[in-house]
Design a binder for these strands. Structure first.
Lengths: 345, 345
DNA sequence: CTGAAAGCGCTTACAG
DNA sequence: CTGAAAGCGCTTACAG
């Protein structure tokens, strides 16, 4: 029922193979014939069938995008629409599409990836998360299937993996140093899920900054929470119940910070007068907290864009060297951090 | 290089057609043969090639999901991950995949849709938005391609369109009535983009509620803003500059409410003591505002789930009647609305 | 219950 | 510069 290459061929009085060559704009076809064929295509409203093309070509022109498990509330983090916007922006440029995978649990995701890869449903894969000991990464490597991860693969020995990341270690270190400069010594750290590599990196940065400043790390000051929203609130309760309340909080994610600030406000602890808060990501809504939060911009859009870029490179040049791209971060000072130097002196 | 049906056939000593039947679990194949073939598949690590299957089958087992234009900041609304989670949940059940489209501008989206449809890249389409006079809807209708829209198609004459929606008119009416009951008479309305059908419906509900209460609608109390975040803030400035300041605000979306509350706080107008605020959507983060916002839960997940459900129905039974599914909404009372009856008496 | 053959709609050596 | 033919990896009437 759909118009095929044959219909066009008949109409234009050429062979189907010629039509095919016109579609791919082969230089071996004369301009006159091209004209003729294009007219026929126009008149008949011809559109190439994607599956036929993919089958013959062994190329799907689509990128697989794997989200973290959707059972987790992290899924609703506006981080994802924004990375996807970045990916999609690059993909569009070169006329690739996006096949989105959102499994509920890890095993489901793993099976989906297998199907995508072996079933040749996509030409390459972008992993939107990077977890400690992730089966998916292992599988993709052993299949030698093009993929890039957003974040850093946990295992250092995986130096053949292309990834796009922020320097999360450095960002966390910088943030801690910033608080130290403001006179804070009791700095707590509210991290995300411990099996995400980013959490590990943040923690390291925090640790080293304290160490360099000669401040002992207090275990009670370091907490991790799975659920973004509730997590932030529980963390605050824990920390504020301590004898030695922290004077500053480093929070893994802006959304979590909303929970943190809300809880603080319920306890009538004022930000930044009583406590400073700083977080990561600079989501669009992060400037809408009251007061607007100080956070680290990680350029989410670019993370996505570059990931797509690297993946395409790999697909086109499978033999090229793996790339490691670091997207710069930037401290966005707003109103949740305050110097306490005056207090002490 | 990949294992094909032929390889399996050879290994299992049967014809390729038999292997194909085993894959589709045809009842006409004996259990013994099935066993044998499955073993061979297992040993060889066979996975069906998706494109070949789609081509022969004329079915891609994938759902196209069209997002609103990504140039707009609405794109980052956590509404989208949540609908997608709903869609994806249903899709997974029946082993369908999701092909995600995110054009930057309307024309691009329109072209993409054409390619998806004509190129048979997907079996059906879910539109995640519903705009006044949308070309895409017109096109899909005329192509007689299966699709469902989340929201309500603008043109009433399009009664052949399947959609999943909230009763946004009723929700807005209820919200207004709730504020009236609390004693508010000066109620302002901060709507979203006027070319989204949901905005139109909200406005109608607001209007009728006021009318029923015998309160004249003041034009200055009705504002619309495109950009979610800045929009909310500008709106507040406009409204608070009026001689007759409103005592209550109805805001189109929770994210916008963050902007609204932030601005109010800067003006040292206290919520809910000086002004009540109520909004729509009940995003996860909506309970993290300070104070936590009163909002209308629209069950975003279910909106997505049902949309996928309806679409699948259409794909499987093209002749079935179009469906109109209304997902119930629910007022979530938190802490941004306050009765002002005491004041007056 | 199973096989041989044609077909899905393209692409691409091979020939001329 | 163009065409005829084989092939991509499946499915599905048709036969037996």
């Amino acid at each position: 029922m759909s118009v095929t290459i044959k219909d066009v061929a008949k109409k234009a009085n050429v062979a189907p193979s010629t039509v095919s060559r016109v579609i791919s704009n082969s230089p071996r076809i004369s301009e006159r014939t091209k004209e003729k064929v294009r007219e026929a295509m126009e008149e008949l409203g011809y559109y190439p069938n994607f599956n036929a093309r993919s089958l013959a070509n062994k190329s799907t022109k689509t990128l697989g995008v794997i989200m973290p498990n959707s059972a987790n509330k992290t899924f609703q983090n506006p981080f994802f629409p924004e990375v996807i916007r970045g990916i999609s922006s690059k993909a569009h440029q070169i006329e690739y599409g996006i096949y989105l995978n959102t499994g509920q649990v890890e095993e489901e995701i793993f099976q989906d990836v297998k199907n995508m890869v072996q079933g040749r449903r996509v030409d390459g894969i972008i992993l939107l998360y990077s977890k400690v000991d992730d089966k998916v990464i292992g599988y993709l490597r052993e299949q030698n299937f093009p993929f890039t991860v957003i974040g850093r693969p946990y295992d250092e020995s995986f130096d053949d993996i292309t990834y796009v990341n922020n320097d999360n270690y450095k960002a966390a270190k910088m943030v801690t140093e910033y608080l130290l400069l403001l006179g804070h010594k009791k700095i707590a750290f509210i991290g995300g899920q411990l099996d995400f590599v980013v959490t590990v990196d943040h923690l390291e940065g925090y640790r080293h900054a304290l160490q360099n400043a000669g401040i002992e790390l207090m275990d009670e000051y370091v907490v991790f929470h799975e659920e973004l929203q509730e997590g932030g609130q529980e963390a605050v309760i824990d920390l504020m119940s301590l004898n030695q309340r922290p004077t500053a909080l480093i929070v893994a994610d802006d959304i979590m910070t909303f929970g943190v600030m809300r809880m603080l406000s319920e306890m009538e602890i004022s930000v930044p007068d009583d406590i400073s808060v700083i977080s990561f990501n600079n989501l669009l809504i992060s400037e809408l907290s009251t007061p607007p939060m100080t956070t680290v911009d990680i350029n989410i859009f670019k993370l996505g864009y570059e990931a797509a870029n690297c993946l395409i490179e790999q697909i086109l040049h499978p033999e090229a060297e793996p790339k490691k791209v670091i997207i710069p971060h930037k401290l966005i000072k707003r109103q949740t951090c305050k110097s306490i130097l005056s207090r002490d002196s």
